[in-house]
């Protein structure tokens, strides 16, 4: 997840690799935070955070009196040294070439996306990824996009573009989808369902089994995230033994029907 970190704090973090990158974005872009978040690698008790790249960028931001910097933290469980190297080498370009490359990318964007980037409502990377969406579609989505948070906006655009590509939609079909979504009561949820139909089906199966038994009982049973794994979590509160007995009875009832559903959700599909 991209987050902000005080520049002072970031300055004290040592680099992971002994060599130094030369990448610096142009000053006016830096002021608008148009640069990839600086990746940090958290090595746990092996030595805390290390900066994968961005030391030179941090120095430049200091000169510009920037107070906070966008960073993305990776844990050593999430990323290996080789993968950290990937992040580093991917950005290791000679200074001028890289800057002009980024500016050329910015120039490639259609005006509505350029505007979102310039207003810091969208990151350049997402804008570049979805730039081939027909302009008419972006214009239909734009008022709705304004109502979303920064991260929701990124997710929505990415999902929409993935569906557009996956389903080989033409402009007319894309417009129809855009109109359907902006008139939906829950556009983001609906888009998720379209993009991830199998995951949505698993969720529906789960709720169809669990919700009727647990509705109004104060017991919450959570499946493993994305149905990855096979551990379900039960949560409830009680204050007296008879309350606990009641909850146990409800769970007993659930236990009698849940095995085939667990099997289906975590081990097999229809």
């Amino acid at each position: 997840m991209v987050e902000k970190m005080a520049l002072g704090e970031l300055s004290g973090i040592p680099p992971l690799f002994p060599f130094q990158e030369k990448y610096i974005t142009r000053e006016e872009l830096l002021k608008k935070e148009i640069y990839p978040p600086i990746p940090l690698w958290f090595r746990g008790n092996k030595g805390g955070d290390r900066m994968i790249w961005g030391k030179v960028l941090v120095e430049k931001l200091k000169e510009l009196k920037v107070q906070e910097v966008l960073v993305r933290k990776f844990s050593s469980d999430e990323i290996t040294v080789s993968e950290a190297m990937i992040l580093w080498t991917g950005l290791e370009h000679p200074n001028e070439e890289w800057n002009s490359y980024r500016m050329k990318d910015f120039d490639l964007l259609p005006t509505p996306l350029q505007q979102l980037v310039a207003e810091m409502k969208l990151d350049l990377k997402t804008a570049l990824r979805v730039r081939n969406l027909p302009l008419e579609i972006i214009e239909i989505l734009n008022p709705f996009l304004e109502t979303l948070s920064y991260s929701q906006r990124r997710i929505f655009l990415r999902l929409f573009f993935e569906v557009f590509q996956r389903d080989l939609l033409d402009t007319r079909e894309g417009i129809a989808l855009a109109i359907q979504l902006v008139h939906s009561s829950k556009p983001l949820e609906e888009l998720y369902q379209i993009r991830y139909p199998e995951l949505h089906r698993l969720e529906q199966t789960y709720h169809a089994t669990v919700d009727p038994v647990l509705k109004g009982t104060g017991i919450q049973v959570s499946p493993p995230p994305y149905f990855e794994g096979a551990r379900f979590k039960v949560e409830f509160y009680f204050g007296k033994s008879d309350q606990l007995k009641k909850k146990a009875q409800i769970l007993q009832k659930l236990s009698e029907t849940i095995d085939p559903v667990i099997e289906q959700l975590t081990h097999d599909t229809v």
């Binding site: 990776f74 999430e78 996956r166 139909p197 199998e198 995951l199 994305y226 990855e228 794994g229 599909t269």
Partner: peptide, 20 residues
């Protein structure tokens, strides 16, 4: 464009039931 979900190692894979 298939359905990939994050797993415990941070990598994205197909849904577990599909992989199985």
């Amino acid at each position: 464009f298939e359905e990939f979900v994050p797993c415990r190692d941070g990598k994205y894979r197909y849904l577990q039931p599909i992989r199985i």
